[in-house]
Amino acid sequence: MSHVVPLLQARQVVASRPSESGQLQRVLQETTLEVGAGEVLAVIGPSGSGKSSLLRLFNRLLEPDRGEILLAGEDIKNISPPALRARIPLVAQKLFLFPGTVRDNLQITAKLRRTALPDLNTPELLELLELCHVDSAWLDRDARKLSVGQQQRVCLARAMVGPCQALLLDEPTSALDRPTADQLALTFRQLAREKGLAIVFVTHDLRLTERCADRIAFLVNGAVVEEGSVNQILNHPATAEVRSFLSPELSGDVEVTR
């Protein structure tokens, strides 16, 4: 998918975050990445390699020390953070549903952005709910009483109400069982293909990656050590880091489900 126009670009981004002890710690060094519209990028790597920080940089939850990040060619520094986050929402690993019904949760986006409440019966919204596999029968149910898989789908749909161009997902399948995760992989593919979204997800789940990603960026210690097509990285890894990550017997802390 290298012919697509890059929708999201990170150029030589360097970033730091305060560590447990309060000291600034470099979490990303000279990272250059791009994702096109309709493309799915999986960011993999050992824990603490800067994967989540990378996601937070894309929607300015974290500000880079150096380098620039572009959305459709525009430096995100020139976009107000709320407007930017409406265009590139992030769905966190820890799902948070606001108290109330599924409908309330889908409408809260508009309340937070101080825009008119969306009519959940418009063709676009019904299409969005269908794409995310949010059953319209759930709308009046207590959002917190749904299963985790259903909650994940509500969070996904909630994030995309509005001018969404790209999706950032942090460990989207970490709380899901295998069949539910497989369904979600299909959903991501559909969202990228049918809505032309750029999707970046961070994961430990190689099966999810195989099923829906176009490309993989492999992060170690805040640097991209390998980047390429899913086939290339998973079947012909060039570096020792990736090879040891992919062979379960050598990487104790990683859950490999293949």
Binding site: N59, L61, P81, P82, A83, R85, A86, P89, L90, V91, A92, K94, F96, F98, I108, T109, K111, L112, R113, R114, R158, A159, G162
Partner: peptide, 16 residues
């Protein structure tokens, strides 16, 4: 978690 989620959905700091 709630405030960060609300920020991620495009809420202004006043709204969240």
């Amino acid at each position: 978690d709630e405030i960060e989620t609300a920020l991620c959905l495009g809420g202004s700091i006043q709204a969240v």
